[in-house]
Nucleic acid binder design. Structure first.
Lengths: 338, 338
DNA sequence: GGACTGCAGCTAACCGGTTAGCCAGGAAAT
DNA sequence: ATTTCCTGGCTAACCGGTTAGCTGCAGTCC
């Protein structure tokens, strides 16, 4: 079913049909009606490929993400998706599994698909930077989301991990914790920032006590807690760089006979589990959906406007207090709904 | 940068360049070399749109999913993604947020994008069936994944919720539970199947005790448990239709002073939280990644082979015992790694 | 030597849209 | 009455690939 068949059926020219479809030229009501009629009768749908080829616009953006399985990232995806669809763009998903060759292949691909823009999420090592540069060299707009880096002239939306972490630690302080420890991930930029916030906030308050794992996992949290206790550290509060690590920490502490939250209070980060785990620990909620929305909006700004200086947007995480017995403490429950 | 420029640069015809790129015709080594040289020098990349227009193949599949944020669905996505990429297909993501109009718009869209195939996940109500039919009418292959329905002549991959649930309940029985209750979701087909398994297994064992919520949420789990206790039901085991509901149940029971797992043993389903929550409850692990892989494979089978009868694939969930203290019980820990 | 065969490589049409530029015919101006 | 202007609608070229079918040359056979 092509536009020419529709034209023939309606007794008009292809230009007229095209004008009706795109509503970008005046067409008399009579012809317009005929054309619409013909389209309906033939159940015609314009061919996206032909349109893209002719106009040079693909109405597609790509989202490059290390792991779609990560709840934070899938919420970002949702945000991007929403904005894109509103503008009639489709989003193609590129989940790289933290693998550089895969990431490289995706970029090759994006290049030949003539995608209109890319949102990029993930660790921002040297090689990711190369990929981003390749995209930009091909004049494809890129916005990074949650991908901290030193490159400042890039459109990006970030989370203020440092400041958010100060809020987290401040909450522990306000909850009567005297000695607060930090559990993080050695090589992670994100974890480093969260440590910074911890360090800032703890400075004139108590000595630093820190333990690291290699990755944001339950096991690494468990092991880090093991280290802390093994070193005979005294603490009544732990700030962990992620919820899943916090759960590892809690498991370890309980094994050592320390009650949570009675003996030790725990603070997580990202609020992926805290709210639901029933372990009574607080966390920092990352506005991931909003971050996705913002990133997509910035991307579309870039796509339409030609030259705007490197935009930047900073989000804060918000405190999520553990769910409590709804009946006993109804007022605390108000804004904790997912 | 077009194929014609490359041809000119290399001093050959466009047909030759095309043949080299697609490696589908014999070309002398000399010319092949010249062409590859030219491609490299000009940094040429074939245009996907033109290719698709000419060949009628888009190398794209779509994944329609109610909510990408659901961990099970995002794992399915990952599986699909992997298979598709291997075959040089891209996958465009359509997260409908359980909204029919949105779903409808996606299908319109898929139709005009001439996508090669669709994987469909989600509740399988009447309207989703309409959408699927629309796709099939346009000769677009569809495979449903985790979308139970009465339509049997459709390619689909399913989870055997009933049989898996029997395994779940059997585990509770083997753990010395005498009276096992079920907590489910009233309108859900999935929940209904899980109830069936429960019912099968409990038949000659103990009386049925059942409570329902309206959705798979923490609150609904909590409320259902409330009901159970209010009705004065006696139970020492609860099988919940999902982990998040199980967590709601646990919270409620603890408020009533019942210890988990000492007084009451809990069984979840989907293993999204059980493993990590530290609440010591078991769950049934859904092989979501594998389901995604299988669905994609079936879709590609359909795309290449013209006529194969309605294929069907049934997966089972597997028992995931709660994580225990690694040091104390190392052997149980073996196959529980994520 | 001429006819025939095989095949590397070329030309040009085609996929299905968009759109610059042209044309026809009615209205307004002279 | 003629010229000019305006504009709705049309024709045809173009986007950048693929590919059917042709060309011309070298080798083979009678």
């Amino acid at each position: 079913m092509t536009i020419r068949e529709v034209a023939k059926h309606a007794g008009v020219s292809v230009a007229t049909v095209s004008a009706v479809i795109n509503d970008n030229k005046y067409v008399s009501d009579e012809l317009k009606h005929k054309v619409l009629q013909a389209i309906k009768e033939l159940n015609y749908r314009p061919n996206r490929w032909a349109k893209s080829l002719a106009t040079g616009k693909g109405y597609t953006i790509a989202y490059i993400v290390p792991d779609i399985t990560n709840p934070i990232f899938s919420r970002i995806t949702k945000g991007i998706q929403g904005v894109a669809n509103e503008k009639n763009y489709s989003v193609i998903l590129c989940s790289t599994n933290f693998d550089s060759p895969t990431r490289r292949r995706y970029v090759d691909w994006i290049l030949e698909m003539r995608v209109d823009g890319v949102v990029f999420t993930g660790r921002h090592g040297r090689e990711s930077l190369t990929e981003i540069t390749r995209l930009q060299d091909a004049a494809i707009p890129v916005v990074t989301a949650l991908a901290p880096s030193d490159v400042t002239d890039m459109d990006r939306v970030l989370l203020d991990d440092r400041e958010s972490s100060r809020l987290a630690v401040r909450f522990l302080k306000e909850s009567q914790c005297q000695r607060i420890a930090f559990v993080g991930v050695r090589q992670s930029t994100t974890s480093k920032e969260r440590y910074r916030g911890y360090s800032d906030e703890i400075a004139d308050y108590c000595p630093e006590q820190v333990a690291y794992g290699e990755d944001f996992t339950w096991d690494d949290g468990y092991q880090a807690a093991q280290q802390l206790t093994k070193n005979g550290a005294l603490f009544d509060g732990v700030f962990a760089a992620s919820d899943i690590m916090a759960l590892g920490v809690i498991a370890c502490l309980k094994e050592h006979g320390r009650d949570v939250p009675e003996d030790v209070q725990i603070m997580g980060f990202d609020n992926t589990y805290a709210q639901w785990s029933g372990q009574g620990f607080a966390s920092m909620s990352i506005p991931a959906f909003e971050i996705g929305v913002k990133a997509a909006q910035m991307l579309f700004d870039r796509i339409s406007e030609i030259e705007i200086p490197g935009m930047q947007e900073l989000f804060m995480a918000s405190l999520a207090v553990p769910r409590v017995r709804p009946s006993l403490n109804p007022n605390l429950n108000l804004n904790l709904k997912e």
